[in-house]
Design a protein around this nucleic acid. Structure first.
Length: 767
RNA sequence: GAACUCGUAGCUCAGUUGGUUAGAGCGCUUCGUUGACAUCGAAGAGGUCAGAGGUUCGAGUCCUCUCGAGUUCACCA
């Protein structure tokens, strides 16, 4: 054996040894107890992205659990997958197009989809290969991609079922729209940022006495021209007399009735609010309540609509300037509070301001009176059917569930699963807008009624890019084009999370026959806490809907990996740690151990190159302790073919030896308990200290001094290799092969040996 | 404004239902290369566990308050 463990020389060979023997697939392990399933569904990384340190974290943690459960004889499976990551991927692809001087508007939908598909295929092997190099003992024969045809079919099944059950509906609601990214988002994708916005005090003439004014404070003067109503609080003694009166729109001069609603805060501004239903969530609610007209001033490109007259076509910012200038000229600006601070919704992707726009889209009803999904999930939490591990995150989850709005699942992007809906054309030509590439390769957009004057429907369909159907247009759900009448397809795709939220069900139902019954509900869902709401919460909602059960029993939320100073890692800061290069330099075992040791669920972890060095040294310690013992035995021919059986008390040298075995077993139990309780950071710390500071520092030294027999020390090594294996799989397996070569052990692979203590035995005895 | 998390050795962090001299890594001091490992070993310095009060036979661990750090949420135009 070499003096130092050379990870680079052994790792890929060892991984290949495992793969070749098929040990990741539970179907090949007949010794596993079929009554004790243990399954983890891997959080699928983006198919076309290289792994970052967070991915290394999940691989390390989940692989520890998987290897441990495999060794204790559970029927263990880790199902890997990758995600098409709709918006992220399309965004990256569009950047690529941009570099080539093109944009998504140059291609019809089908062509663009195919281009992205090819692009993703080119890169999709990267994530998988990297996970393998991190030692992931996942069952690759069960690998799934979120756009696999069988997965897509199941997602469409879910959509149809929920639609039939009334849990998915199409409605014209105010959605969070990013005019730059060109798509709507759910409430989770909106980042509220504090900013200084001038607050304009605008004077409105009273209809009866135009020489008298009332003043309204607003940060959004630009859509004033479509405003139809003002509102005051019905209990506001100073202003309730205004109810029923009318003011004049300061831009258009239209009469504006003044209504009353509780939502108006008499203390804020002037106590009078202008109602802009189409572009403010509160106003939208008020408008629905009072049946006010919903007139749009801003379109999906962030420009002022035709209704804007002279302002039409301006951007929101330009229009604001122009409107304020006109109001000022007319003497209708009373004052401007330049220091006013408010919170504005911005796009999590591009950081630009989100425009609330009324659009007809598909929503998941989360609080249906017949089938209240949030209540069901809360009940699961109450009954402890699902346990959240991670520093108070359960309360945050509960708070979200209590306050959740319906989930907008329509996205105006191409890269995703198309929503299987077709809109009827005849009689609704005026209610459908269409964007398409005509036969001359030009992008054309307009109402279908107008376009049909110049184009054949077939040409429109051929180059189809976008269909925007009003709420009243009838639709049918179908995976293929219906033949009965003329239809245009929905061009929106599902929110990526709509399919991801079904992932535990999808992966098990589209895999080998019987997998669903065998492994559902899964045991542990392990992921970063920052996607608790995006993913975990929605998996609970969808899981309980589809199966009546939680999709997993334990949720382990790991923290973010930060740099030495506790700063978030980001490419722009240049403080990222590439897990693959750390793995190359210090070894995968060192990388994994450094991430796990003393980590706590839900708590961020600062990490530094020194941590990897320390654990590289630990791997070397394991190597050298083994080297000492192997050398000791190889120098002594009588030990050959020693099988590692526990020496009986009769072959011991007094009390030291039996005491040694007692302690060894106790340490194995302690470690097992930590692993059972998902205290992985503690477990790693325990095994580190037990091995180094007890086994090496004390026991091996005692052996050198002749106080502990060689059989005992070999026994200890074998036990510790097993205990260490889930954390540091490569060096331990490599040492095992050395032991085998020296005929000190007989089992071919450490990965499939049994755990030193029988954790189930004790459990069974207790019950 | 609210919720959540954290404040333990010089630095980065562990420390299951409260229980003997509070731990690790790195750093620091002194010594050690007689073949497992200098990617090491031995010995050691260093903490009134943010502060105050309370519960208890006993609190880093539970409760209250204060201070400080961070995260998230919130419809005030």
């Amino acid at each position: 054996m070499d003096k130092h463990f050379d990870h680079a020389a052994h790792e890929s060979e060892i991984y290949w040894l495992w793969e070749e023997n098929g040990v990741f697939n539970p179907d090949n392990l007949p010794t596993a107890n079929n009554n004790r399933p243990f399954s983890i569904i891997m959080p699928p990384p983006n198919a076309n992205d290289p792994l970052h340190i967070g991915h290394a974290m999940f691989v390390a943690l989940e692989d520890v659990l998987i290897r441990y459960h495999r060794m204790i004889g559970d029927d263990t499976v880790w199902i890997p997958g990758t995600d098409h990551a709709g918006i992220e991927t399309q965004f990256v692809f569009e950047k690529k197009l941009q570099k080539e001087g093109k944009s998504r508007f140059n291609f019809d939908r089908k062509t663009l989809y195919q281009m992205i598909w090819d692009y993703v295929q080119e890169n999709s092997g990267v994530a998988i290969e990297q996970m393998k190099s991190l030692g992931a003992s996942a069952d690759w024969s069960r690998y799934k991609f979120t756009l696999d045809p069988d997965v897509v079919e199941k997602v469409l099944d879910t959509f149809e079922k929920m639609h039939t059950d009334g849990l998915i509906y199409r409605g014209r609601e105010l959605v969070n729209f990013c005019t730059h990214c060109g798509t709507s988002y759910s409430e989770l994708e909106v980042v509220h940022k504090e900013q200084v916005s001038p607050l304009y005090y605008v004077k409105y003439p009273l209809a009866e006495k135009p020489s008298k004014f009332i003043t309204v404070a607003t940060v959004r003067p630009e859509p004033i021209f479509i405003d139809t109503h003002l509102a005051v609080n019905p209990n506001d003694p100073k202003r309730k007399h205004l109810v029923g009166q009318e003011a004049l729109n300061p831009i258009t001069g239209e009469r504006m009735p003044i209504i009353s609603d509780e939502y108006v805060d008499p203390e804020f501004g002037t106590g009078i609010v202008k109602i802009t239903p189409a572009h403010d969530p509160n106003d939208f609610r008020v408008a629905k309540k009072h049946s006010l007209p919903i007139r749009e001033a801003i379109n999906t490109r962030g420009k002022i609509t035709e209704a804007g007259g002279k302002y039409a076509g301006m951007s929101v910012a330009e229009a604001r300037k122009a409107v304020v200038a006109d109001l000022t000229a007319a003497g209708l600006i009373e004052k401007i509070d330049e220091k006013y601070v408010n919170r504005v919704g911005t796009c999590y992707r591009c950081g630009r301001v989100i425009e609330p726009l009324p659009m007809a889209q598909f929503f998941v009803k989360v609080k249906d009176s017949q089938n209240n999904l949030t209540e069901k999930v809360l009940a699961l939490l109450d009954e402890k059917k699902v346990k959240i591990h991670g520093a108070g995150r359960e309360k945050i989850l509960r708070h979200w569930l209590d306050n959740l709005y319906d989930w907008n699942i329509s996205r105006q992007i191409t890269w995703g699963i198309p929503i299987p809906v077709w809109y009827e054309i005849k009689g609704y030509e005026n209610d459908i807008e269409v964007g398409f590439i005509n036969d001359s390769g030009e992008y054309v957009y307009g109402s279908l009624a107008n376009l049909l004057n110049d184009y054949q429907l077939s040409e429109i369909k051929k180059g189809l890019q976008q269909v925007v159907a009003a709420e009243n247009v009838p639709y049918i759900i179908s995976r293929t084009e219906p033949a009965a009448k003329e239809y245009l397809p929905e061009t929106d795709t599902f929110d990526t999370w709509f399919s991801s939220s079904q992932w535990p069900v999808l992966t098990l139902k589209t895999n080998k026959t019987g997998d669903f019954d065998r492994f559902y509900p899964t045991n542990v869902m392990e992921t970063a806490y920052d996607i608790l709401m995006f993913w975990v919460m929605r998996m609970l909602l969808m899981g309980v809907y589809l199966t009546g059960q939680a999709p997993f029993r334990d949720v382990y939320l790991h923290g973010l990996i930060r740099d030495k100073k506790g700063q978030k890692m980001s490419k722009s800061k240049g403080n990222t740690i590439n897990p693959l290069s750390m793995s190359e330099t210090y070894g995968t075992d060192a990388l994994r151990m450094a991430l796990i040791v003393r980590s706590t669920a839900g708590q961020d972890k600062n990490i530094d190159e020194r941590d990897f060095i320390a654990m590289r040294n630990f791997a070397n310690k394991i190597w050298n302790a083994s080297r000492y013992i192997i050398m000791r035995f190889s120098q002594n021919p009588q030990y050959i073919l020693y099988r590692g059986q526990k020496p009986t008390s009769s072959d011991t040298v007094g009390d030291t030896n039996s005491n040694f075995h007692l302690q060894l077993e106790e340490k194995a139990w302690d470690l097992s308990r930590s692993l059972q309780n998902l205290r992985l950071g503690v477990a790693a710390d325990q095994v580190y200290n037990d091995f180094w500071h007890w086994f090496c520092d004390e026991c091996i030294e005692e052996n050198k001094a002749g106080k502990l027999p060689d059989e005992a020390i070999l026994d200890g090594l074998i036990t510790f290799l097993k205990l260490l294996h889930p954390f540091m799989p490569f060096v331990t397996e490599r040492v095992w092969q050395e032991l085998r070569a020296a005929e000190l052990v007989s089992e071919p692979l450490l990965i499939t040996t049994s755990w030193p203590v029988d954790i189930h035995d004790q459990k069974d005895n207790q019950t």
